[in-house]
Computed example of a mutant assay.
Amino acid sequence: MLETDLYQPVKSFFENQGYTVKAEINDIDILAIKEDITIAIELKVKISLKLIYQVIERQKLVDNVFLAIPKNSYKSHRSSVKHFHLLLKRLNLGLLVIDENRVEIVFEPNHYDFNKSKSLNKRRKEKLLNTFNNLNSDPNKGGSRGKRMTVYKQNVIKIACLLADKPGLSPKDIIEETGVLNTQSILQKNFYGWFQKSSYARYLLTQKGLEEYKKYG
């Protein structure tokens, strides 16, 4: 499919809503005008960063900007469509999807409510700040991939260091000495296989725990 194949369906769509529509007006693929409302529509068969640059430029000249893409291109980005939608919405852009002669408005340009977005993600922010505040020093290297020090791993190491020095402690004893409030959960889940019970509610390090905790000493 070519960009020119998208033109007639989009032109007809806006004309049916009472707009006067013309193509290639000062580098804008389609310009639709009704009374004092101006809309720019950029036609593209593939999604790219260059396309985003173009539609942002159009916002300087008109009231609203739509991106129009064919349905097959839209479907090919299904795995990342949620993020694509979020990007366009944050930029106050609209999205049209064309399937042969049918035009679907996925969403219209609207002012993005950043406060609402932050409110909906309040718990995620709390988790972010909790991780920042509870992670000792700065143990990870920015931009790195693979294993990273987490608050959970850090707490496992704290418990392991204590049990290496004082084997046979209870969860209550460990909490009092380390301040790790989720000690009971860490010991029961034993994600890394470092801990074992020595008797009722008393814990020791496994051989694996004895060997591995030293790497972080």
Rank of each mutant, 00 (worst) to 15 (best):
A201R: 12
Y203M: 07
D29K: 06
K46P: 01
D138K: 09
G18F: 10
S117C: 09
D113G: 11
E3C: 11
F195H: 03
L162Q: 04
A40H: 03
L210F: 14
K34T: 02
S76Q: 11
I30L: 11
K44W: 09
K71V: 01
K118T: 01
Q17W: 15
K147P: 09
G94H: 00
I52A: 06
Y19I: 07
R124A: 12
Q54S: 13
Y192R: 07
D36W: 06
E176D: 15
Y53I: 08
R145M: 09
Y192M: 07
W194P: 05
I56H: 14
R102N: 03
K166S: 15
E108M: 00
N26S: 15
Q17H: 14
E57V: 00
K71N: 02
Q8P: 02
S80A: 12
N190K: 06
G143T: 02
D36R: 10
E177L: 14
G146V: 08
L204S: 03
L67I: 09
G179S: 14
P167R: 04
Y192D: 08
E212L: 14
V151W: 06
Y216L: 06
I41P: 03
L129P: 00
Y53T: 12
V21I: 04
D113C: 11
T206I: 10
H111V: 02
A68H: 07
V21K: 03
A40D: 08
L6M: 08
I30N: 08
G94K: 00
D113N: 13
V103Y: 02
Y7D: 06
A68W: 12
Y216R: 14
Y200D: 10
P167V: 01
R58S: 03
E35R: 09
F107D: 11
D113K: 10
S119L: 07
L162Y: 07
L163P: 02
M1E: 15
D113Y: 05
A40P: 05
V103C: 05
L51G: 01
M1G: 14
K125Q: 14
G146W: 06
K46W: 03
E100M: 02
R124M: 12
L135T: 12
K11Y: 01
L135C: 11
N190A: 04
A164M: 04
V97C: 04
M1H: 12
Y152K: 05
K60Y: 12
V45G: 01
S185M: 13
H85C: 01
N136A: 05
L95Q: 01
G193V: 13
A40F: 05
S170L: 01
E42F: 00
Q17M: 12
T206N: 07
N26C: 09
L51M: 06
E42C: 00
I98Q: 11
L67F: 04
Y112M: 15
L43K: 04
F132Q: 00
F84W: 14
S137L: 14
I174P: 07
L88Q: 04
N140L: 05
E104V: 13
S48G: 04
K34E: 09
W194M: 05
T4M: 15
S73M: 09
K118C: 02
I174E: 11
V45T: 10
R123P: 02
K215H: 08
L187V: 13
L31I: 08
